[in-house]
Write a protein that binds this DNA or RNA. Structure first.
Lengths: 205, 205
DNA sequence: TTTACTTTTAACAAGATTGTTAAAACACTA
DNA sequence: TAGTGTTTTAACAATCTTGTTAAAAGTAAA
């Protein structure tokens, strides 16, 4: 097996496929468009990945593999204060989302809900670490106790995810270019970190 | 023209088409599935709407027509306090999103960005009312002045939209049923209204 | 150079999907 | 009931898309 060339074309295909699947979704993606983008003959896609389905599963699983670990990083560094942990999380998560399309995952899950239940089993254990972490903070009296941890979870992820997922609509309705929107969002992680910390702190009224 | 029957079948088709387009997206939607759902022959879809494209445009435009006015209701009732206005907006917007899929719009816009620029011109004027409104509140000293109005805009819409768009993933990762998620979200509008008000008020530190 | 193996291509087959059309069924009025 | 126009259907045509295959091109070792 000629590892040299096969890896590079396989990688070229994956890069192209990722892009096309993200842009058009599984149903809108065309094998022809993927091979054109990769600069190779369409039959090669089948040579390397057998079928469109198999290729998609590979892309989808790799996206999950990158994405899921981010959702369960709340029990590391027990010495770190929750404020710092939160800041670090928001920064990391947003940086990640800038480079990886979460909308892709969501769109495909809605198209085929089966994807969520069949392909994420191994991650599910880590998913409630967030809620457990904030439950503990509440018990320890470190944050206000009148908020449901699940709401906190939802709020934090919404503030991190949606501004990037919806960038195209936000920039349009704010009448700025996507470049200007990126600039506007440069300070965003810092801002919502501070807002969230302010919210979670004990209230003095 | 037999108005009686034609309106009811046309409406049946539209209901079915909306559902299928929302679930599968334009590319995944099949004319056959739509006609099955509507309980009619597939050729009737073409009789009423000529083509899949035309039918989609109708659905898409109607969705925009319902959605866009919600984004520009900030200059009515000048006597209403901003707190009340915000509460009312959050409640209305979330109620609306529960019944109408915003993900549908976003997904199709990403598939074909042209849809955004070509079919939303008439709404664009109203879109910056929000930002203008909050700019004015800042000038009048009614809310804290250190936040960018555009960030406020993004934060409010993110908190309202994403928990509903992403319901399927949130309920999965919280390990609760969609029914339980709905129950969890019953109190959500009230909660984020209060959080937002708290955030926007002048800081006392 | 020959041989054996891998990679790539062009051409083809099978199936799915949209859109058309001619005729049947229906509804309503004279 | 006969006639007129509308609604609905079944069958068909055209196109697009995925996937297969046999052969060509490339690579590396004997």
């Amino acid at each position: 097996m000629n590892t040299e060339t096969s890896i590079s074309t396989e990688e070229a295909i994956l890069v192209a496929a990722r892009k096309v699947f993200e842009l058009k979704g599984f149903d809108g993606a065309r094998m022809q468009e993927i091979s054109d983008r990769a600069g190779i003959n369409r039959a090669l896609l089948h040579y390397y990945f057998r079928s469109k389905d198999k290729m998609f599963e590979r892309i989808f699983d790799e996206a999950l593999e990158r994405f899921m670990p981010l959702l369960s990083t709340w029990d590391q560094d027990p010495d770190e204060s929750w404020e710092l942990k939160l800041k670090r999380f928001v920064r990391t998560f947003i940086t990640f989302l800038k480079a990886n399309s979460m909308l892709f995952l969501l769109r495909e899950i809605i198209r085929k809900p089966d994807l969520l239940t069949s392909r994420t089993k191994k991650y599910r254990k880590g998913l409630n670490k967030f809620v457990l972490y904030f439950e503990r903070l509440k018990l320890e009296g470190q944050i206000r106790s009148d908020l449901d941890s699940r709401h906190i979870y939802i709020i934090i992820y919404s503030l991190c995810s949606f501004p990037l997922m919806n960038a195209i609509v936000f920039s349009y309705s704010l009448r700025i270019s996507t470049k200007e929107y990126d600039e506007l969002m440069a300070g965003y992680p810092e801002i919502i970190s501070n807002l969230l910390i302010q919210l979670l702190k004990h209230q003095n009224n």
